[in-house]
Amino acid sequence: MNSIVCLKEVPDTETRIEIRGGKIVEEGIQYVVNPYDEFALEEALKWQEKFGGKVTILCLGPERARESILKGLAMGADEVYHLADPAFLGGDAYTTARALAAAIQKLGDYDIIFCGKQAVDEDNAAVGVMLAEMLDLPHVSVVSRFEIAADGKSARAERDIEGGREVVETPLPAVVTAQKGLNEPRYPSFRGIRQARSKPFTQWTVADLGLDAGGVGAAGAKLQVMEVLPPPDRPPGRVIPGEPAEAVKELVRLLREEAKVI
């Protein structure tokens, strides 16, 4: 069971995001592995324990993503392909999926591709499914339970849908995007950390993938970010004075007429 796990480095959700001149200030941001990608990696490692084979991390991102990638290796992945060529950067979900698809085609030998359901930076939730389309593979997205058949040829997935759960069967290879709850990602062990740095670590450029620099990264993006704005300040809380019985009536009226939540 050879798995490819697409891993992205994102700002830690606890990092304070500062916006200056319509752009996010990158200085001082703490980066981590996208949490949904950790679920994806854990799932790949889990099935590797059962079926054997290898787990390959594929990452598109700048040089600084190395530390996040090393964490993936420390958790137990076998090797890494890092698309760090600046030409890959600054794109959108489409150019990212295009580059990843080209890398996966070059890698060839795989049974399953795991992605996080979305990256918590831009929250597109698009790369995984685009990837499946480009590779002409079936996909199951937002998966919270996953099981590979004993013969390794098909899989059964559960996904949360409005008001229930959907159970899906798919032949393999397929693209699966991971939802929270799919598993509990393991911590890297100290031994894993020590071994991580000696595992195969390959960087691929645009030329290595036989792509045209005009079709990937910022140059190929179909989506252009015009401006980034911080969310408006939350208005301060309001105290409703008076006797409890009266105050509750007023609260209900406000919730209905002003906040329009009931």
Partner: peptide
Amino acid sequence: SEEQRMVREM
């Protein structure tokens, strides 16, 4: 070092 940073994070 990279290893020490990873130990701290882990």
